[in-house]
Write a protein that binds this DNA or RNA. Structure first.
Lengths: 255, 255
DNA sequence: GAGTGGTCTAGACCACCTA
DNA sequence: AGGTGGTCTAGACCACTCA
């Protein structure tokens, strides 16, 4: 036992920092409050800025902080519970929670999607772009891939693209009689276009929800929806909305 | 339009690197193959090691790489589809996919769990620790919180802890007649103890599945299961198992 | 002991936002 | 224009694995 440290593994600095900062957030800060800037925090804790940033990154990943370039770092509100259960392709959705179709195009789907659709390697399909908003905030961007065979009655060429076309495709898919679906969730990083919709930088962590829409057991469409991982909690149950009833009005630091 | 760069935003180096490396992985590497070490890769691309690491980090987050200290960086296999739908507290589970109880203790649950359980602030509950293995690999670590009130017939003090005690609690919970559940999924980072079970470093990205087990509409237990985000894809549908049928035996570099 | 990835430093410059 | 977070560098040392 001479040279070996006895059972005390030296914790990385950034990990310890994260713990300390996390506790400070609980006790000394309120939601929305602005933290001191990174250079000052680093100096205050006696570490390099890169180390401090590593701790902040983790806290942001856990949804406890929100950082915006040119603005600052703020304390994040608790994650939004977003229902991802049975709301279908054009699901009803509460007034404050809705999908908004943006566009439509004919594209060759990515390989992973083509495999699920069981279409040929370079067969073009309709790609409907939608975004989902909850409580006035954009939380998800989606690409819905619909093979032409799934919407046989779609008018040929009314308008080649745009929201109207997107709505047509959705309507026809609905009419086809979707009667089943299965989903999977995995971690990903936002592509440039998704990042833009979600108001994040490219590469931001996202939860990718892949949905197969079934018509009589056959895959009629596939959707790739990317949810902001920092601000969202995906709920699946029927009574999923477990909101923490905090007093809505909290002290905010006067500026 | 004099000083502004005309529509060409300079892509960050690490982002471009990630793209290049990603394409190389698709075309020039096979699953399990070892990449050159970080210092050499950085030199080869003419960037600092930190920048190269930023690209590798992203690829690891997306499940395309696997890095292990002291060993090296390897090409990761496609993510495992792990079913997270209706397998109950002591669910049946396929032979190759099972939960294994490890331990049991009486603890005061974290605040978030206490809120879901609707127990008092410092009321102690049973905490059962389990790990889940699929295809011989540990993919998840779970803490199941069971209030004493939910398992009234639990023998008082047979053994205070250990796997046997854990199994008793699970059996009694099952007997209580769980008839509902709801789940939520969010991004988190592995705590030290979870990281150990999952063979990852603390702070590794995980998908946290929170499950409420219901008995006649009342919350009887709450489970926090952390799945390795790098290697797992959580599936929810009924026919969720969409496996890419690769040849199971692949060439691995001889050492 | 040699080689790997993980942590950390002290700087620099850039892109973005607000005023 | 000044301040913020985001990117990048060139080094150093540490913890771990394996032969």
């Amino acid at each position: 036992m001479g040279t070996t440290q006895l059972e005390t593994v030296p914790e990385p600095k950034y990990w310890h920092l994260k713990t300390v900062l996390g506790e400070a957030l609980d006790s000394e800060f309120t939601v929305g409050e602005i933290l001191p800037n990174e250079r000052e925090l680093a100096a205050r804790f006696g570490v390099a800025r890169a180390t401090l940033r590593q701790a902040l990154e983790q806290l942001e990943l856990e949804g406890r902080l929100q950082r915006r370039r040119g603005v600052g770092t703020t304390v994040a509100p608790p994650r939004l519970g977003v229902d991802v259960s049975a709301t279908g392709a054009g699901g009803p959705g509460a007034p404050e929670d809705a999908w908004q179709p943006l566009d439509c195009a004919l594209v060759a789907p990515p390989a992973a999607v083509a495999r699920l659709l069981e279409t040929g390697p370079s067969e073009e399909v309709h790609a409907v772009r939608r975004v989902r908003s909850t409580h006035g905030q954009c939380v998800a961007a989606e690409l819905l891939y619909v093979p032409a065979a799934s919407v046989p009655d779609l008018p040929a060429i009314e308008t080649p693209s745009g929201p109207a076309r997107a709505r047509s495709v959705l309507r026809e898919l609905q009419r086809a009689g979707v009667n089943g679906q299965d989903r999977s969730v995995e971690l990903g990083s936002a592509r440039a276009d998704d990042a833009k919709e979600l108001d994040r930088l490219p590469g931001a962590p996202v939860l990718v929800v892949t949905t197969r829409y079934l018509v009589d057991g056959r895959t009629a469409a596939v959707s790739l929806a990317t949810y902001r991982a920092d601000t969202c909690r995906l709920t699946f149950g029927d009574t999923g909305e477990i909101e923490i009833s905090d007093d809505p009005q909290r002290e905010r630091r006067a500026s």
